[in-house]
């Protein structure tokens, strides 16, 4: 897995997530995320490549959220597919992460 981080203004946008984010690669995802995050406050994750996520995958996202919150930042996610959204709902992730459909909506939300 090779995540990519792109800096746009004061925001870090994480892309190139794997197609399957599950217990098999959650640890690797978590390690790469923590390297990318550094001390960035505003972080956007592009979920569109992910077609399948399980509780371990969500757990890795929660770990990232905790890291970001520790430095007073926010985690915004866009492009989640139906299955991913369904699992987010089951895990009540929509209550703790800002979810948007498109990249533009995610960016706009941070400009306000």
């Amino acid at each position: 897995m090779t995540l990519t981080g792109k800096i746009q203004g004061s925001t870090l946008i994480v892309t190139a997530l794997p197609e399957f984010l599950d217990a098999g690669n959650a640890a690797a995802f978590r390690a790469e995320m923590s390297r990318l995050l550094g001390d960035h406050g505003q972080v956007i994750v592009d979920m569109s490549p992910v077609h399948f996520i399980d509780s371990a995958g969500c757990g890795a996202l929660i770990a990232a959220l905790r890291h970001i919150k520790a430095s007073g930042g926010t985690l915004t996610v866009f492009g989640a597919h139906k299955q991913v959204r369904r699992v987010f709902e089951l895990m009540r992730m929509h209550r703790i992460i800002n979810l948007f459909e498109t990249r533009q909506q995610a960016l706009d939300s941070l400009r306000l």
Partner: peptide, 20 residues
């Protein structure tokens, strides 16, 4: 039972199974 406030990263598997 799972904790949903973002403070816990594990313990959700059984919840997902039971609700799916």
């Amino acid at each position: 039972p799972p904790v949903f406030d973002g403070s816990s990263e594990t313990g959700f598997g059984l919840h997902i199974i039971a609700h799916t």
